[in-house]
Amino acid sequence: MNERSEQPTDTAGPLARGSRTDSAVDPATETFVAHRNLLFTVAYEMLGSAADAEDVLQETWLLWAGVDLGTVRDQRAYLVRIVTRQALKRLRTLSRRKESYVGPWLPEPLLTAPDVAEDVELADSVSMAMLLVLETLAPTERAVFVLREVFDLDYDEIAEAVGKSQSAVRQIAHRARSHVAARRPRDAVSPAQTRNALKAFQQAVETGDLQSLLDILAPDVVLLSDGGGLKQAALAPVVGADQVAHVLGRITPAASLQPAQVNGHPALIVRLDGDIDTVITVRIDEGLITGLYAMRNPEKLSHMERETTVSR
């Protein structure tokens, strides 16, 4: 998946982030800019790719620019409908791309502001663990779940967005909720708990203390690493505390581990010679790390250099 690092992560349409709106700005542009961060978040949660979410925003803007605003009753809902439909089209294309992807495919990590964690539901919805759960849903199920559970849209609005009847959407929502509930982390984990686990993890890796590392890893921990065929990474999941600890023991002493806020949760950035080499996010259940997600694909790290705004 090709990134375009020169584009800000939340830019779409004629106005970049931070541009001043005034009386010269037409109503369509003003409305689009006002809802841009929301639209980006919808697209990103559906796709797991910031680059593709940006493309969807561009497509949404082009369609929105041709709409007669006088015929639109609820502009926010109308924009969400457009972005959902465009994301659904791209989601099917992404599924075909993933079939030929080298090794495990992980969602693209985002450097997020600390205040994202204050909205617990939003932070949970963009977490790496949740995005991977959403990957197991069919495209329409994913769209319905995101729009209903994360953005609290009414069933009639969702029905229009996905082209289904309200009764069908209710059934899809129920099925998707059950599917996600069976696969999401068992307990809510506070940011402080995650930070503490990562701090212990970081110290164990930096000091080479194997026992301390094993103490923080669940016996059945799974490590997924995404190199995209561009960086060395395990081509299959690494399962079990001993095996995962062995892989982590290969992190060079020359690397520096830097705490960061990634996808609304504490994470670690591994740097070599000042450059980002790997982004490590975790899933925690009952106080132990049960999932480790290591993003190494350089094409999926460009959004780690500056914060991306996500919102509901």
Rank of each mutant, 00 (worst) to 15 (best):
L94T: 10
I280K: 00
T278I: 05
Q193R: 11
I289H: 01
T71V: 10
T60M: 01
T252Q: 12
L224A: 00
M295E: 07
D187A: 13
R312T: 15
S302T: 13
Q86M: 10
V56G: 03
V244G: 01
E121F: 12
T9D: 12
D209E: 09
R170L: 14
R183T: 04
V270T: 06
R312Y: 07
S178M: 14
G48V: 02
V189F: 00
S19G: 12
T309G: 07
S190G: 08
Q243R: 15
L47K: 02
V102S: 11
I216A: 01
L88C: 06
Q202H: 07
N2G: 12
V150C: 14
H265F: 10
G274W: 03
P139M: 07
L268I: 00
L248P: 00
T41W: 05
R76I: 04
E299P: 05
Q75C: 05
L223G: 00
L147K: 04
Q203T: 14
W61A: 00
T252P: 08
L292P: 00
T93E: 15
V310A: 08
E157Q: 13
T11Y: 15
V120H: 13
K164H: 13
S190V: 08
T207W: 03
R195S: 10
R170K: 15
I251Y: 15
A77V: 12
L91Q: 13
R81S: 09
E135I: 06
E6C: 11
L38C: 06
H174Q: 15
L88D: 04
E160P: 03
A51D: 14
G18D: 04
D154M: 13
A236N: 11
V83P: 04
E206G: 04
S311H: 12
V279M: 01
V270F: 01
P237H: 01
P185Q: 03
R183V: 02
I158T: 07
L301M: 06
E307R: 15
L91N: 07
Q243S: 15
T11M: 10
S19N: 11
L122D: 08
